[in-house]
């Protein structure tokens, strides 16, 4: 039965066990990050609980690269709140402030008009052609918390994908080569 022992020792020399261990650890990190994200979605009721500010239309309150924490909740939307909305046929969500609200008596449906603090005009020109009001289903969440600068990492990685790949490569390399 010497060949079994030989085989085992050769596998040992490949350090299969350590490689597996590292793969599992990496998987755990990815899985827990996903779990935290999904849990945040459940708790806040918003489909994207954390957003990065991409434009300067809310300056000086929010600058490019700031991070906003969103919450949807069941509370009705009121004037003055900062909401993140998604217009049909537009990819990028917009963070602006509600300036007008009309809430129906019978259905509870709302008509919402928004405007960026730093813009001169309201957002009707940003909405879909022929759309004058936002409805509840356009709103992804309302901003409840704020963290400056942190979002720059995301902006840089989105605009310069090379940096993203280098970073992922370096982390992967570290994960594979590091010993415990």
């Amino acid at each position: 039965m010497g060949w079994i022992e030989d085989g085992i020792s050769s596998i040992r020399s490949f350090q299969l066990r350590q490689a597996l261990h590292q793969a599992v650890t990496l998987g755990m990190i990815v899985a827990s990050a996903l779990m935290i994200w999904k849990m945040l979605i459940c708790v806040t009721g918003s489909e994207s609980p954390v957003v990065v500010v991409l434009s300067g239309s809310m300056e000086p309150g929010f600058q490019r690269g700031d991070i906003l924490f969103l919450n949807m909740g069941r509370d009705p939307i009121r004037a003055g709140e900062i909401v993140v909305y998604n217009v049909d046929k537009r990819e990028i969500p917009i963070v602006h402030r509600v300036i007008k609200v009309h809430e129906r008596k019978d259905t509870g449906e709302v008509d919402i008009l928004t405007k960026g603090d730093n813009n001169d005009d309201d957002d009707i020109s940003l909405y879909a052609p022929g759309q004058f009001w936002l409805k509840r289903h356009h709103i992804m969440g309302r901003a409840v918390g704020f963290l400056p600068y942190v979002g720059w990492a995301t902006i840089i990685m989105t605009e310069k994908p090379v940096i993203k790949y280098i970073l992922i490569g370096a982390l992967g390399f570290l994960a594979i080569t590091s010993k415990d």
Partner: peptide
């Protein structure tokens, strides 16, 4: 950092439970 302040007219109409106009 800053305070955003606004004045709104708020009223009820037969059709709408709440109208908020900044």
């Amino acid at each position: 950092k800053q305070v955003f302040v606004f004045l709104a007219a708020e009223y009820e109409t037969p059709k709408n439970m709440l109208n908020q106009v900044s």
